[in-house]
Design a protein around this nucleic acid. Structure first.
Lengths: 206, 206
DNA sequence: ACCTTAATCTTGACGCTGGAAAGAGGCCAA
DNA sequence: TTGGCCTCTTTCCAGCGTCAAGATTAAGGT
């Protein structure tokens, strides 16, 4: 056996080990290169062991997606807190947290927002994505003051679309393919600033 | 043999047949469910036949991505043409074409803008994505009048990010999960209008 | 302390995949 | 007609996800 003799027959916390190795593997190999057997190998366990913790590969991926959303929401909230009390600044902060998470976990991020994710859990991630929206909706409402529900909805759409679109395009290379990450941050902040300004202005026209 | 006797030993135009069946298969099964053997089956050909036209599965996917970008650019240009001469309206038109293509080819669209695509061609799609950006950049320049290169760049980022982010979030379900497609179109147009307004205003401040 | 039960992990098998190698079939130019 | 070349088929390999069956250990009641 290649497996070290020091390891017990029972792993101890295989579920967590699989989540950890799975997450690394996902970033390394991409969605298509992700393999349950390689996950098991890295957790130093036989190829069929994961079945007792995740009924299928999709369930493991779903768990990764679920945790990704939790982290994303936490990153956004933390960055908004750091941004102070001004609604526009806090909106930018949410965007910074959003983009930072996406940049640091790009494959996972794309999986979270891909139709693969929709296929594999349908409901589970919906709640998680809803938390992202409500974080944005609350801040947009703050920035807008009193405004109709429709305006709030549309500005939330708009704010989300701006930050999501920008970072997605950066990750794919469409925006600033060969630019320094320093320059990219500046461009991202500029996009977020334009977004926040548009939101604020739509609350107090002209 | 299950293969019909009427088919000749030589297919005639297998490459195109594979592209066609591959494209349908991609939309049906998603990136992870895409299979070279199933493509071959649908083209009524043995599983190893594709190798003579595409050295690997990734090359077939790369070809699908390449053609996708061509269609995307064409759809944007057509819609902008329909929108008339007003820069703001044309910007919205580009967005409408963009979103319409994405909605009609959602899996392909997500593949085009995923890191899988980056992995599998690196260069090939870059030129194609560049065509999308230049379409936008030209229209932004028109809307801005005379403005610094930096402003033009940032407004192009912003415009692209808005349309890309909105349709991506719709496809994943983050925006308007259970809304009618009619309502969704209205929300999309609202986001595009906010974007176009922001671009135009940044050209002639206040 | 012991024995039962359930949980955890391993082994082995199945049908599927992508890819390589080798041979068969048909087109075309000499 | 014949030879060469391209296209396609067949066969084989290792790796994949998943299932079934057996081995090993932990936990808990007596």
């Amino acid at each position: 056996m290649s497996r070290s003799k020091t390891r017990a027959y029972h792993h101890g916390d295989l579920r967590e080990a699989l989540v950890a190795s799975g997450r690394k593997l996902l970033e390394e190999k991409g969605v298509r290169g992700f393999t349950l057997r390689e996950c098991a190998r890295r957790a130093d366990v036989s190829h069929a062991a994961p079945a007792h913790h995740f009924a299928s590969m999709d369930e493991l991926l779903a768990e990764l997606v679920r945790r990704g959303f939790e982290e994303l929401v936490a990153a956004m909230a933390a960055e908004a807190g750091r941004a102070g009390a001004e609604p526009a600044a806090r909106l930018v902060g949410l965007g910074v947290g959003y983009m930072a998470f996406a940049a640091a976990n790009s494959v996972l991020f794309q999986l979270m927002y891909s139709q693969e994710a929709v296929r594999l859990e349908a409901k589970a991630a919906d709640g998680a994505a809803e938390a992202v929206r409500s974080l944005l909706a609350d801040e947009v409402e703050e920035a807008l003051g009193h405004a109709s529900g429709e305006v709030r909805q549309r500005m939330t759409d708009f704010a989300w679309a701006t930050m999501h679109g920008f970072i997605t395009l950066v990750l794919e290379g469409g925006i600033g393919g060969r630019d320094s990450s320093r320059a990219l941050k500046t461009r991202g902040l500029a996009a977020l600033a334009a977004m926040a300004e548009t939101v604020v202005r739509s609350g107090s026209p002209r």
